[in-house]
């Protein structure tokens, strides 16, 4: 039995090391530092309307989807979308599964400090809002969450902020779901009292269901959205920044924002990061 166990453990270790393998040399030489010549593989969690989601026909759509398509045209590369679950999406950058994550990613100080990924220039204003049932008032700051059931999406900045509020001593029940859609479903079913989510998602959701839900006044954080690439891939970051600047200048980003969020959130992006973590 002992022998068997040690064999198993050794096997596990070998697998772990293999999984940690270095792949730095593979990308050298490809234009824009891409994993595959001429193909920009971008990961997104396609349950995040209006940023990325499936339309009624099952086609991938949303702000990020259209923006990446436009970036691909600017750079002359093919965009390949990789659908991923949110928790672990950044791991795929380190693992070399794709070149970038464009999935409503917030820039936060912690993500910058961790040096797992680096960010393009911000393309959209964003922060966290609290979505409540129609008629609920008085929820304007974190302390007002006390005694409530709070829904968030697992491993998002909303989840991280809520954990922080808990450790600060605000007493509430935190329930984290795999997707923000599930958190909203739970709000509809009454399993949670409020949902904390990104501005864009919260606004779009409340606009679609304005008879049922409201958005609170307080913006809890300021964390603009950007495209994440593997830490150290300056070539790709620069290429993305150039494309984003062109798309901002020719009005493409503004048009997309109006199309998907009803309002232009791409102007005067507030880069004064306020995150709770």
């Amino acid at each position: 039995m002992k022998k068997l166990l040690s064999v198993l453990l050794v096997a596990l270790l070998i697998v772990s090391f293999a999984a940690c393998g270095n792949k730095d040399d593979q990308t050298a030489g490809n234009k824009y530092g891409l994993l595959e010549e001429g193909v920009l593989k971008v990961a997104m969690e396609a349950e995040y309307p209006p940023m990325e989601f499936k339309d009624e026909n099952g086609n991938l759509t949303g702000f990020d989807v259209d923006m990446m398509k436009a970036i691909g045209e600017k750079l002359g590369v093919e965009i390949q979308y990789v659908e991923m679950e949110w928790a672990g999406i950044f791991m795929g950058l380190t693992a070399g599964n794709y070149d970038a994550v464009c999935s409503g990613v917030s820039i936060t100080q912690a993500r910058i400090d961790e040096k797992q990924m680096q960010f393009s220039d911000a393309y959209m204003n964003n922060g966290q809002y609290i979505v409540v049932s129609e008629g609920t008032t008085n929820i304007n700051q974190p302390a007002d969450l006390a005694g409530l059931k709070v829904g968030v999406q697992f491993q998002t900045t909303a989840d991280i902020a809520a954990q922080k509020y808990l450790s600060d001593g605000i007493q509430f029940e935190l329930i984290s779901y795999d997707s923000v859609q599930q958190a909203f479903l739970a709000l509809e079913g009454g399993q949670v009292d409020v949902v904390v989510a990104d501005a864009t998602v919260a606004i779009a959701y409340v606009n679609e269901n304005n008879d049922k839900f409201d958005i609170s006044n307080a913006k809890l954080t300021n964390e603009p959205m950007a495209i994440a690439v593997e830490y150290g891939n300056d070539e790709l970051t620069e290429a993305l920044n150039n494309a984003l600047a062109e798309l901002a200048a020719d009005g493409t980003l503004a048009d997309l924002s109006v199309k998907y969020v009803d309002t232009d959130l791409t102007q005067d992006i507030d880069m004064n990061l306020v995150s709770v973590e």
Partner: peptide
């Protein structure tokens, strides 16, 4: 069950591994 918000073993590991520490899977 983790998909409906229960933090059991796999979800605990997913959380810790999210920033690349894959040893938690094992």
């Amino acid at each position: 069950i983790s998909t409906i918000g229960i933090t059991e073993l796999v979800k605990t590991s997913k959380g810790f591994a999210a920033s690349g520490a894959i040893r938690f899977y094992f």
